[in-house]
């Protein structure tokens, strides 16, 4: 029967029968209505999507992970304040996405930076919007970060066993502020330039390490052509990488330790019966 059909690629051809098995299912259904191999393939094509997901899930173990991560139990009284951390992370993701696309047009050269930034704003399609989102998004991220920190503090969510998550959060705060500092230079207008001069000299005022810190930031004793490339590398590679890694650690600890109930919810005291006492 199979000899009559056009030659199929090897992987579509039916496997030869094992010695104990009967003749394989023919490729084309028989006139009497018995379904062939092609009919079965056609039937299963509709279930392809589900099969792909199932195939991946079986090999990666995604669904048990997601079940534990997304459907974990949260305390009674969980409210909108608990979304501030996710909001901050969303702001970070939006900064990362808009930043990647800004990097396609931006030129971190001291003689070209200002022109390329104004080119983004004035010439590129939707450039003003993307640059605006990146600029205002940075402020939004810092505001959300402080609100998230205030929520954690006021709700007492930094206490045992979550102290380490507070520490990671503080490092994330410092890194986010460093993003603000390094990003401020990149438009390279008068304001960026002088603000960076002042900011680097503020770093220089620290005793003992200050002069070294300032030289590291500037890439030398004077503000020079390598200062802007240095800030650019810190702004788009080093600090975002650290932030992404620490967000991962932060989330892992949140999932592992769970969230705290709001402080106004008291533990429900059960009236003990005489027998229990």
């Amino acid at each position: 029967m199979s000899k009559l059909t056009p030659p199929l690629p090897k992987f579509l051809r039916p496997a030869p029968p094992r010695p104990s098995e009967k003749e394989p299912t023919p490729d084309i259904g028989e006139p009497n209505g018995k379904p062939g191999r092609a009919d079965k393939l056609r039937e299963s094509a509709g279930e392809g999507g589900a099969q792909v997901i199932g195939w991946l899930d079986e090999r990666t173990g995604t669904s048990p992970f997601l079940r534990g991560f997304l459907f974990r139990k949260v305390p009674k009284g969980t409210n909108w304040f608990y979304s501030l951390g996710s909001a901050t992370m969303f702001a970070f993701v939006s900064q990362a996405v808009t930043g990647v696309f800004l990097a396609m047009y931006y030129n971190p050269d001291a003689t070209r930076a200002y022109e390329s930034a104004s080119y983004i704003t004035n010439e590129v399609f939707a450039g003003e919007l993307v640059r605006g989102m990146h600029k205002w998004g940075s402020t939004v991220m810092i505001v959300l970060l402080f609100l998230h920190m205030a929520r954690t503090f006021v709700f007492g969510a930094y206490k045992y066993p979550r102290e380490l998550n507070w520490v990671i959060g503080v490092v994330l705060l410092v890194l986010t502020l460093a993003m603000g500092l390094t990003g401020y230079l990149l438009p390279f207008d008068q304001r960026s330039y002088w603000a960076t001069i002042v900011a680097v000299n503020l770093n220089a005022s620290a005793p003992l390490i200050g002069p070294f810190l300032a030289d590291f930031l500037r890439g030398g004793a004077e503000f020079s052509s390598v200062t802007i490339t240095r800030f650019y590398a810190l702004h788009m590679l080093l600090i975002p990488g650290l932030i992404a890694a620490l967000i991962g650690a932060h989330l892992y600890l949140v999932a592992k330790l769970g969230t705290t109930a709001p402080p106004w919810l008291r533990a429900e005291k059960k009236e003990l019966t005489k027998e229990e006492i």
Partner: peptide, 10 residues
């Protein structure tokens, strides 16, 4: 000129 490589900023 403190740094010719940075244009006006130098």
């Amino acid at each position: 000129n403190t740094d010719p490589g940075v244009g006006e900023a130098g």
